[in-house]
Write a protein that binds this DNA or RNA. Structure first.
Lengths: 352, 352
DNA sequence: ACGTTCGATGGTTGCGCTATCACCTGAAAC
DNA sequence: GTTTCAGGTGATAGCGCAACCATCGAACGT
């Protein structure tokens, strides 16, 4: 009835697709095509449109895109307190990939020991299309089980033995430990001590296996006394290294399952007046910031953490898409990333 | 003309606002009101709607909300490589806050020395409403200048001297250093060595000032020989500590401007057969993971990093909103967070 | 020469939500 | 008893974009 002149709701300063279309002298639809895949657009038209986009500094509205039928992928990332240093590299990679894929990343801490299932439940209540699990959560039976129960796609990262039903991205811990052990042997060491990781992380066993396999391959004897139990903490490394160096015939090299424990081994050596690496070689694993915050800087194994996070996100998104399309092949890819032995100053041949 | 039955575009499994409305027997608009602020809705109606929401497990579509006139805040976070451990705590806080505020966080590395301005430019090209700068970028004149030029709201975090035109969140470095120095003196130390931070980070000077002020307040002499230049790196800490301990009358305590350098000081002490803390007290700053990855664990100053990130985001969003509303008061709040002296095992009274 | 096909383009519609205003009730005010 | 007003509620109209046809011209075949 009334010819009311409603006030416009807002004045987004930024250009919209119609502005671009007008400037380029085409329809909005054509602009959309140029932005998206650009299929079936004449070269000349495309150029005009692109020029218009550049001139107006146009950036499509994500919200509108999603609303108009684009997908809206939401990925949850659960993390627990340990290894903040690792987490940040991981987050950066995940964030990067989710933003280029136009997905949302929801980061949730999952700290309390018993509250894991609860944290999962809480996360899932917000409609999550997939979950990405960095270590050590990627090994947590409670979390894994809760997620499996919810039938949500999951990527387990850097775990030694990912569940079959999940996706995974990891390095070959066994091979990495093999490589490091081989490296130490090639330096001339034959009594190589090993400090294990926490028994509830599957990677720990893999690393130990790699150590043993290398020994076997090199026809070196495996001496159980040279394997000391550690728990990935500095403190446990202190004890393990002490135990190893207290041996009647102590090792000439110690390979620790992470950098914290390697740093601890260095400390123990120094306290005993042992020069590293002249009198004792010490190697770590993970290449965390600690590896270069210690003197001498640690020879260690580096995982491409940021890149692994990126890959994990990509894997997850692919799985989500194929699920949505009903194309889920029931395949669960397990990606193996390349590790790298980083040689620094903590290794040398055995003392004469 | 044609009574074509268009195929529906997609079948979002999840409930929409209309479903809730129908179930609750009200209009979508009422549901919207309940979701948002709930102003002018009868208590009974609200309850019905809430029940319907719960039953359908309804979650509003962000995209639709934004599109329908909600704000769409995009915050950029620039970071450079140093102190990955810090970054991750920071990221977690920032992510948390942006997601509850329904804003987007765009994380961009800014590594190359000269490419800072370029990184800023690249970030700004994507329509950014504000930028959050963790250290050490919060002290980078190049970055700051580029941002100021672009007239974008900025929060500088953990900088000693934030530009007036920007927002900031930091602890009072001067007071923190004062507190630590005071603590050492109260333990009985009167010759307290100090290792400075990198001269291009403004917090360094603040910390030194705090040290000097505490000395003055305690009527202890200030001896320039007890101040050694460091650069926040482990290596520089090694040199600085060596210099300090080589003094004819060496200090009985060393206060380093960060944990890395404190760890280095511990190493130097150990190499000289000095027991820490029995024969030398060493204290750090920042409470990074390193502080507890070293033996003895470091007494240090802890910044509430995660919380500071949260606050920074909140500050930025408030500023963006008031700008959008044209209410920008020209005020630039500078929030001061609470630090905490964390006492661990690296300090004790001076040797008798 | 004329129909056929296909590539390029445009018009229309609607994604799910909220701003706006109209409306409708009941209670207080006259 | 009627007016007034406020609080509660509903109807309508987009937000900016992309899916879905429709269309139109040109290259192609016979």
């Amino acid at each position: 009835m009334s010819s009311q002149t409603r006030v416009p709701r807002k004045q987004r300063a930024s250009a919209k697709i119609d502005d671009v279309a007008r400037l380029a002298g085409v329809s909005p639809m054509t602009v959309s095509r140029v932005i998206n895949k650009g299929a079936n657009v004449r070269e000349e038209t495309r150029r005009k449109v692109e020029a218009a986009i550049a001139e107006l500094n146009y950036a499509p509205s994500n919200a509108a895109r999603i609303l108009a039928g684009g997908e809206d992928i939401r990925i949850g990332l659960l993390h627990s307190n340990p290894s903040f240093a690792y987490l940040s590299e991981f987050l950066v990679g995940a964030l990067e990939e989710t933003s280029t894929a136009n997905a949302q990343l929801l980061v949730k801490p999952c700290n309390e020991e018993g509250g894991e299932a609860k944290a999962v439940e809480k996360l899932l209540r917000t409609r999550i299309d997939g979950v990405i699990l960095p270590p050590p959560l990627s090994d947590s039976p409670a979390v894994l089980e809760a997620l499996r129960h919810a039938d949500v796609p999951v990527v387990a990262v850097a775990t030694g033995r990912a569940p079959e039903w999940a996706l995974s991205v990891s390095i070959d811990d066994r091979e990495a430990a093999f490589t490091m052990t081989h490296h130490l042997a090639s330096l001339g060491h034959s009594r190589i001590g090993f400090i294990t990781g926490h028994p509830n992380q599957t990677a720990s066993a893999e690393r130990l296996d790699g150590y043993r396999e290398a020994l076997a391959a090199l026809h070196l004897p495996f001496d159980p006394a040279l394997v000391a139990q550690g728990y990935f903490t500095y403190r446990s490394g202190l004890e393990a290294a002490t135990q190893l160096l207290d041996l009647a015939v102590p090792p000439t090299a110690i390979f620790a399952s992470n950098d914290d424990m390697a740093a601890a081994a260095v400390t123990v050596a120094h306290r005993r007046g042992l020069d590293v690496p002249r009198q004792l070689t010490v190697c770590g694993y993970d290449d965390t910031a600690l590896a270069v915050s210690v003197w001498p800087e640690l020879t260690t194994i580096r995982q491409p953490t940021t890149d692994m996070a990126r890959r994990a996100v990509r894997l997850l998104i692919a799985e989500i898409r194929s699920r949505n399309a009903g194309t889920s092949a029931g395949q669960h890819p397990h990606v193996v990333a390349e590790f790298k032995l980083i040689r620094r100053d903590s290794d040398a041949g055995p003392a004469a």
